[in-house]
């Protein structure tokens, strides 16, 4: 008989062990944590506040990576046309990109999941109305819907978030409805209904928690696509304003200097964006495999 105490296998431990079975996914998760950390503490990590004009020197404009500033420190990723340190600019840009991406994906998740659950539970004309709207919206590509909304509203951080929420809610609604249709036939729902619990309680306290796995997977994918879409819109000049530059806008700023060979103004923000998206997609891929092997993209 071994004397060791059997460690209890909680659902979370099992989940963590399943997730860790793919080494690349673990690296990607660490990457996401580091990126979020960098964005959250940008003001502490960045060597310079890129939007404090007192700290900028126009004479430092468009210096290549590794150049020294007159004050004696090194611009590891070069500077942009205003003499901003690109590394600091990227950290502050990450903050806006991630804020918009996570914020809109979470808002869309709450609205979309609620509507999807209501559609599945209510049935009848409510379900038809909601699902027809979902079908209509998903038959047009995200970029077109976002373009249309921003053409009406004009640019701005809140407008971009609103556009992203409108673009993304439909996918959550479809997923939530599909999951809830399966769950609502289960015995525990019948039991809850027999207890004469109010409908909203059955729906949101009993059915919703059991629909979470596919919704988490969709959420992870949607964060990545929201960040990418925001960057694209900002690159086109329809997204965030100049005063709050995200990674997409930083890339756009470097566009005009590309042709004279000053690659770093566009290259490094793009690399930061690429690494962020790849890490998020890899995490989402592994989550999908672990949480729901049946769900195929």
């Amino acid at each position: 008989m071994s004397a060791t105490v059997q460690r209890e296998i909680t659902p979370f431990r099992r989940f963590a062990a399943d997730y860790a079975s793919n080494k690349i996914a673990v690296v990607a998760l660490i990457g996401v944590v580091i990126i979020v950390f960098l964005a959250l503490f940008a003001n502490l990590i960045a060597p310079q506040n890129p939007y404090d004009l007192a700290q900028l020197d126009i004479m430092d404009g468009r210096l290549p990576p590794g150049a020294k500033s007159p004050a004696g420190w090194t611009y590891w990723l070069g500077t942009d046309d205003q003499g901003r340190d690109m590394f600091s600019g990227i950290l502050y840009g990450l903050r806006i990109s991630l804020g918009v991406g996570f914020g809109s994906a979470a808002t869309a998740g709450v609205i979309g999941s609620a509507l999807g659950l209501i559609a599945a539970y209510a049935g009848g004309w409510v379900e038809t109305a909601i699902m027809r709207l979902v079908d209509l919206q998903l038959s047009f590509p995200a970029i077109l819907v976002a373009l249309m909304i921003l053409a009406f509203l004009g640019k701005g951080v809140m407008n971009v978030m609103l556009a992203l929420v409108i673009v993304e809610w439909a996918r959550y609604a479809r997923t939530a409805r599909a999951a809830a249709l399966v769950e609502r036939r289960r015995e525990y729902v019948e039991a809850a209904e027999c207890l004469a619990l109010p409908q909203w309680r059955v729906l949101f306290r009993h059915i919703l928690p059991n629909c979470m796995p596919p919704l988490i997977v969709i959420g992870a994918i949607q964060v990545a696509s929201a960040i990418l879409l925001e960057a694209t819109l900002s690159f086109l000049g329809l997204g965030v304003p100049i005063t709050e530059p995200s990674l997409g806008l930083l890339i756009a700023n470097g566009y005009q200097y590309m042709l004279s060979g000053k690659y770093w103004i566009s290259f490094y923000p793009g690399l930061a964006l690429l690494v962020t998206i790849v890490c998020l997609n890899l995490v989402a891929d592994q989550l999908r495999d672990v949480l729901n092997p049946r769900l195929q993209r």
Partner: peptide, 12 residues
């Protein structure tokens, strides 16, 4: 995952 507009810039 590649941001298509950035890839375009890199092509140029």
């Amino acid at each position: 995952s590649l941001p298509s507009f950035w890839v375009g810039l890199m092509f140029i």
